[in-house]
Design a protein around this nucleic acid. Structure first.
Length: 1073
RNA sequence: GGACGAUUAGCUCAGUUGGCUAGAGCGCCACGUUGACAUCGUGGAGGUCACUGGUUCAAGUCCAGUAUCGUCCACCA
């Protein structure tokens, strides 16, 4: 039989083979299994955006999810890891629009809604494919059959139903919101598409005349400052601080805007006005400033929009200003104010002005109509959506919290944000996304008295918005009709909300003059539904279709009633693994929509679960972020990202996974110094800070990547030859040489895999003649018992650590065991037995035992490692199966078909033997001490030395038992051990806690050097002794410290003194010559 | 501005409820390639635990403050 394994682990050969094997065998698939002992374990992927390829953050996120999924699967759970991608409205549309503009000079208005959406679908198809492939390459054991996309039919149904339910429950309202308006492109831009730039501006101070209670000017003037005088047209108030004595007497009066003649109230608001700033008085323009808007809501101020979409002044400017550009208007107003005698002064000032990323032109805060979901509680005190999600974490009923954060500190982020209960603006003026399922037409108009709101019983919930009437179309349960009046314009509308995409209903509506809302829903609206939508909700009568469109066969043939078994079985989910930046936007919303939508699901109706328990996951693990070598977030705009594929190709998937897991601790983000390896000369060019080195600095304009496909070629600083520099932002041109990313930190994982590989290689080479058989306790040697004790302990530890999501510690525990215990000691110690020949060349009985324990331990180790490094484990598992298909500790059993479906190791705790481990460390310390002496005196490893040990008889006996190991591990003959031993002449010595060792080195020992060495040792001991005895002399310590601690110090001190005594004796002898 | 986190060896990080001599990996130095592994082995050097106070018998660990760095959120008349 050939057991030839290459000397080095070759990941690329192994990886594709096992990916196919796992897939063919359906090992990743998870199916409802309610009638078996198996329990479900559900993880929903934090759906990656189809904006671009995956980066290192995804690699970390994916590795951890796969680790947990594989672990739980081995533990016997029906483990589902649900994959899928997010349409990512703004980001994706922006990238496609930008590319289209740069390559073809086209804007979306040139090609129209339908054509743009079609183009984005094509983009989505290509990137979704790439993303899923990247995940596969990482070894992700997702149930790929169930892959979902937020715009697919299953998810769309969930979106429509949720919106409809919200609408019906009065949770959806229409309101105004200030958006960042790009007048050039005539579109709203998201916050992250806005950059701030300092521009030269002016800071004017003007006055408004005060109007008395009789409506006449009092002669007093109120001074204020502004950088945007044109917004005067839209002022609704002037605001001062409530405790500002200068203005106290004016609050409640009005003042007049000189250029329009309109009177506005003088109000006092502590949040808006700051006494010490400027004149202490500020004008309030709710429709054109974010702070003023909030103030306007607090005081019920009129919101006056003064701009047309192209940023010219609208009808509110009156004859004088209407039609002027906002900047022309600014000049005009300044002139007019001056002419009217209300100008005080002007100074030049640098102003931080918001600019649109796309058009690079200034954006204006612009009041627009938007849809909202109410987050606040109900007027009657019934908890609203936000409160329900908070309760799931804080557990007000004193039961177990239903959602728990790991690490716990992150629950604060979640609670603080939800606690604000801010209404959720769900509409976006985009074309890529779920269209808002509401059709409307205007049915009239009523006059609304300026500045006064029409109040009704929902006033708290709908502050600033008004609801009139609520009709339901009784013939269609999926049609809701509502009539509402716009609180600012007085326009009356009838809205029709549909939970249907039935073209017949829609065309009927449109015939009657109804138009569908142009906006689409916020991306987070659909991703909030991810945990239940992917499982087929709201369809509770059928299993969700699989990704290829086929339907999943029922697993419950006996059950005649149709039901959605998938949703029933896998919801509520188990754990969400994500990064901290979406705790609010995503995690919080998944909890609240999950509770809301699932509160009346079949399991609740059947009484199996309470509505409060229908949370999407019971654990949230928040993992660290990946940073570059300078501690900066990796981002597109900085160009410092890394495609995980570079690392996978270079180090192997398992190495990348293992390294990543070892980085994932509870506190620190992961700093990854990276470099680019020149394909010509292999020189590694370190990644430099933004713009200061050979880092790929993608062509940027004002801080943002131009998402073009242009290839950047850069010369290597050493060999001067050009190559592409890899980045996740570009697809590498295969025709050009590429400098791909490397990072020393991944050698950790690569080296570990290689070590494991070689340990297994050694085992396999020594398993010739292996026969399965029961391992008798009495046949076990010291090292066997020790390795089993250690394996049992480590297994327990890793299991606990994974349960707490402490991946760094789990990784370290496994590595330490594998390398420093299994390889360094156990394998070394069993070599003699493996070499022992039996009679007639047959396998000797001691060899047979060694083989059985070895293969049993290796088997356990591979299983322990499978979730971390699945590929190498599968490879070794299969190799091991060829030579030892039946194996195991104590009782041999047939090995599982695949490592990934083998059971998670559980070793009896009775194997753990602290006393034996202590004895073993004495052996280790002795061996190390002898090796040390060899190193110090330059005695080669093959020159035999003798060892004398002075110690208690009991210790001596234990040393004698493992005497053969001294020879094996240190080429050392234990000549004698016991209390009566004296230091042989011309020997080097060492001392342990309970023994002194002497190695006679006739002719080899340099007395002077040895004396030096021992003196140094004595000094070290004296230092420790001083510290310890000082403690004991301190009465307060002896009085106050726990007895146990005092006793420990005494014991240690005694030991140290004894050791010092031995060393001093040696020194005395050496001194004598 | 608010919240959270970090600051320990040249680098990247561990360090449990305060308690024996503060650890690991990489890098460095010396030695070592005939049988698992040079992606290796053996041995070694290397730390004023950011700073200043405080609590305590005892502080890397707890408290207060300072400095620097980072993340998220809010915002910048």
């Amino acid at each position: 039989m050939s057991t030839e394994l290459p000397k080095q682990y070759q990941p690329s050969e192994v990886q594709s083979r096992w990916l196919d094997y796992w897939k063919e065998n359906g090992y990743f698939d998870a199916n409802p299994n309610p009638n078996s002992e198996k329990k479900p374990h559900t993880i929903m992927i934090p759906l990656p955006n189809v904006t671009g390829a995956l980066h290192m953050g995804h690699a970390l996120n994916g590795t951890l999810q796969d680790l947990i999924t594989r672990w739980r699967r081995m533990q016997g759970y029906e483990a589902l890891w649900m994959p899928g991608t997010d349409h990512a409205g703004i980001a994706t549309q922006a990238v496609v629009e930008r590319r289209m503009f740069e390559e073809e000079g086209l804007t979306r208005h040139d090609i129209g809604r339908e054509a743009l959406v079609e183009r984005i679908w094509k983009w989505k198809d290509s990137y979704e494919k790439r993303i899923l492939e990247q995940l596969r390459q990482l070894g992700a054991s997702c149930d790929w059959r169930r892959t979902r996309f937020t715009l697919d039919e299953t998810c769309s149904k969930a979106v429509r139903r949720t919106f409809f339910r919200f609408f019906k429950d009065g949770l959806i309202f229409r309101g105004k919101r200030l958006v960042n308006w790009d007048p050039h492109l005539q579109t709203a831009v998201a916050n992250d598409e806005v950059f701030h730039e300092e521009v030269d501006g002016h800071f004017w101070t003007f006055t408004y005349p005060v109007v008395g209670e009789d409506g006449e000017l009092t002669g007093e003037k109120l001074a204020f400052s502004t950088t945007r005088p044109e917004t005067m047209i839209g002022d609704s108030a002037v605001c001062v601080h409530p405790t500002d004595e200068r203005y106290e007497h004016l609050v409640g009066l009005k003042c007049r805007i000189p250029v329009t003649g309109r009177d506005i109230p003088i109000i006092a608001d502590a949040l808006l006005a700051k006494k010490e700033l400027g004149t202490g008085c500020v004008k309030v323009t709710p429709a054109h400033d974010h702070n003023d808007y909030a103030c306007g809501l607090r005081y019920g101020l009129e919101q006056i929009n003064i701009l047309n979409p192209d940023a010219t002044i609208n009808e509110h400017g009156g004859e004088k200003y209407q039609g002027l550009d906002r900047y022309e208007c600014r000049t005009k107003i300044v002139e007019d104010m001056e002419a009217l005698g209300h100008f005080v002064e002007v100074e030049d000032r640098k102003i931080e002005l918001a600019h649109s990323d796309r058009s690079k032109s200034p954006v204006e805060p612009y009041l627009s109509d938007q849809w909202f979901v109410k987050m606040d509680d109900w007027a009657d005190g019934k908890p609203g959506l936000a409160q329900s999600a908070m309760d799931a974490v804080t557990d007000p009923d004193g039961k177990k919290p239903r959602v728990k954060f790991f690490p716990q500190r992150y629950q604060r982020t979640y609670l603080d944000w939800l606690g604000e209960k801010r209404d959720w603006c769900i509409s976006r003026q985009l074309w890529w996304g779920h269209r808002i399922p509401v059709w409307s037409k205007q049915i009239g108009q009523i006059q609304i008295e300026s500045g006064v709101f029409v109040q009704n019983e929902d006033s708290k919930a709908f502050a600033g918005k008004t609801v009139f009437g609520f009709l339901t179309d009784e013939q269609n349960e999926n049609v809701l009709v509502q009539e509402r009046t716009d609180a600012t314009s007085g326009d009356q509308f009838r809205y029709v909300c549909l939970d249907s995409d039935d073209p017949e209903i829609i065309s009927k509506l449109e015939q009657e003059g109804y138009e569908q809302d142009e906006s689409v829903l916020d991306t987070w609206f659909s991703s909030a539904l991810w945990p239940h939508a992917t499982l087929g909700w709201p369809d509770t009568g059928n299993n969700p279709p699989l990704a290829d469109g086929s339907s999943e066969p029922s697993t419950l043939d006996s059950q005649p009633s149709a039901k959605n078994e998938v949703l029933d079985y896998f919801y509520p989910g188990s754990v969400l693994i994500t990064s901290r930046d979406i705790i609010t936007l995503w995690v919080a919303r998944m909890v609240l929509t999950g509770l809301y939508n699932m509160k009346d699901s079949p399991r609740v109706q059947r009484g199996e679960m309470s509505p409060q328990d229908m949370v999407p996951f019971s654990h949230v693990h928040v993992h660290p972020k990946i940073l570059d070598g300078f501690g900066q977030t990796m981002s597109k705009s900085k160009g410092n990202g890394c495609d995980p594929q570079d690392l996978i190709d270079r180090y192997g998937t398992d190495a990348v996974r293992f390294s990543i897991a070892s980085f994932a601790g509870e506190t620190q983000d992961v700093k990854l110094p990276m470099g680019y390896e020149c394909p010509h000369c292999e020189n590694v060019v370190p990644q430099a800070l933004d713009g200061k080195g050979p880092m790929v600095k993608p062509a940027t304009v004002k801080g943002t990547l131009r998402g073009t496909s242009e290839k950047v070629l850069m010369p290597c600083p050493k060999c001067k030859k050009e190559s592409q520099f890899s980045t996740p932002q570009y697809d590498l041109d295969p025709a050009q040489p590429a400098a791909r990313m490397v990072s020393e930190r991944f050698e950790y994982g690569r080296n570990f895999c290689n070590k494991l590989w070689n340990a297994a290689r050694f085992a396999i080479m020594n398993l010739e003649g292996y026969t399965p058989g029961k391992i008798q306790e009495s046949d076990l040697r010291l090292e066997d018992r020790w390795v089993l004790s250690r394996l049992s302990r480590v297994t327990e530890e890793v299991t606990t650590l994974l349960g707490r999501y402490q991946f760094d510690k789990a990784t370290q525990a496994i590595r330490d065991f594998t390398w420093n215990e299994f390889c360094d000691w156990y394998l070394e110690m069993i070599k003699p037995r493996l070499k022992a020949e039996g009679d007639d060349g047959a396998v000797s009985s001691e060899k047979a035992v060694a083989q059985r324990v070895l293969v049993g331990v290796l088997d356990g180790l591979i299983r322990l490692l499978q979730p971390f490094t699945p590929f190498i484990c599968e490879e070794l598992w299969q190799k091991l199966k060829d030579i030892a298909p039946e194996r195991g500790l104590f009782e041999p059993q047939a090995a599982a078909e695949s490592a990934m479906i083998a059971s998670w190791p559980e070793l009896p705790a009775s194997l753990q033997d602290a006393n034996l481990e202590d004895r073993f460390s004495r052996l280790q310390e002795t061996v190390v001490a002898v090796r040390n002496i060899r190193a110090v005196y330059g005695i080669g490893p093959n020159v035999p030395v003798k060892l004398f040990m002075k110690c208690e008889p009991g210790v001596a006996e234990e040393l004698q038992v493992c005497a053969d190991q001294f020879e094996n591990l240190a080429k050392t003959i234990l000549e004698a051990a016991g209390a009566e031993i004296d230091r042989p002449a011309a020997s080097a010595s060492f001392n342990l806690k309970d023994a002194d060792g002497f190695v006679p080195l006739e002719g080899l020992v340099d007395v002077g050097a040895e004396l030096e060495r021992q003196k140094k040792e004595a000094d070290k001991l004296r230092g420790f002794i001083k510290g310890h005895s000082a403690k004991l002399k301190n009465e307060k310590f002896v009085q106050n410290a726990p007895e146990k601690v005092v006793a420990e110090v005494r014991e240690t001190l005694a030991g140290l003194e004894k050791q010092l005594e031995s060393v001093e004796a040696v020194i005395a002898q050496l001194g004598d010559g």
